[in-house]
Design a binder for these strands. Sequence first.
RNA 1: GCGUCGGUGGCGGAGUGGUCAAUCGCACGAGACUGUAAAUCUCGCGGACAAUGUCCUACGAAGGUUCAAAUCCUUCCCGGCGCACCA
Length: 420
Amino acid sequence: MDLIKDLQARGLIEHHSAELETIFSKKRTVYLGVDPSADSMQAGNLVVILLMKRLADAGHRIILLVGGGTGMIGDPRESGERQLADKKIVDRNAKALRAQMQAIIGSKVTLVNNADWLLKVKLVDFLRDIGKHFTVNELVKRDIIRRRLENPDDSISYTEFAYSLLQGYDYLVLNQKYGTDLQLGASDQWTNILSGVELIRRKLGKEAFALTCPLVTDANGKKFGKSEGNAVWLDTKKTSPYAFYQFWLNQPDEKVGQYLKFYTFMSPFEIDALMELHKRQPGKRDAQRMLAHSVTTIVHGKAAADSAASVSAVLFGGKALADLTKEEAALLLREAPSHAISAEQLTNGYSVVDLLTDTGLASSKADARRLISGNGVSINDVRIENPDAKLEDSHFENGLALLRRGKQMIVLAAPAKAKM
RNA sequence: GCGUCGGUGGCGGAGUGGUCAAUCGCACGAGACUGUAAAUCUCGCGGACAAUGUCCUACGAAGGUUCAAAUCCUUCCCGGCGCACCA
């Protein structure tokens, strides 16, 4: 299937600045900008990263821009002025993001940081050479800016107002330096991307293109926000491969089909066939299983995906810990998050509350107690009912205690000495 | 600069001297039902502890009045609006 049809079948195209046939009539140099406001990307960013990979695989040249310069400012949001990021943090985040994208997309990627040119820009030169090509009349018509102008409590600073010029300038620089002639982004970046398209046309008389994909939303129509606290990160330190796998496995029926198209490389035809099956037996969750395994493979590799699937099968297979085979128990100990308990702790009486906070399953002791009184904690699938409960020998099976918060958050506790 | 209104928990938004760790909605977490789903319902949602209670921190910041302050006063910081200045 050719690229255009594939992208359309997946619903990956939201806006495009010219006919798709024109845009893809030759090999392009494509760029995507990522804002370094965190040290890891998360599930929301992944669609557009994978879109880049799709283009790369189709033979287009790929440039990834980390917004080390624009990240100092931040693009305008719906409401409320952004906090300016600290320079050191931006630098550190930029490095982390760079490595992450490289790993997913592969080797033939050019990486640039707009701090390299934006931080050198002289104000008066910028206003003369770039600012002259933008009219305030046009800028104030933009949705987000207009909304913030109309709502006095959310007024917008000049800094954020000018953000679009910087992004436009990035495109201009990349066009001159690398011949970049296509910019990608999520649809919320559409007008910012067009700034660059316009700027290149006015200043250089050249045509450059723009393409956006839809913003991914969850079942409630909300976008996966980085600030929501429940973000699913690509960094294994922030979200373990097991948790990452579980996230995808838990997607609702209404969304699996779309996510398969957005987040995997299965062909739209295969996906449709799978969804047909799934509709007949939604309870089997085959579509979710496929989604979880595919995405985990893309991000963390096949070995990690296989392990996550195996651990999930054991944990949700309905078997008691005592009934696990040696192999299964070993697998759990190897793959699931674990926590060592010293002999003294055990003999001195180690409370379940402490165990919950020490393993990170609860954010505080108060939180741990709340969870226990809310029937949310179990060890080896036996519910802990007393908030003052201590960890005892009887809690261990095969030398392990499987601590569970809710259904999916698990940590294995094992005595420090006993190695299996 | 002057005047005026405002700044409350992740967000929105009540409260305007004790009954306030602060109504309510959203978000989030747990439970029930299910299919590790959705919808629905229930509970929870600052922290520590000798824990059905006690204490600490918290309503922009710092002081003050009071037996008692999110609530009153002073100063400062930040934002909105109006006026002035400047054009």
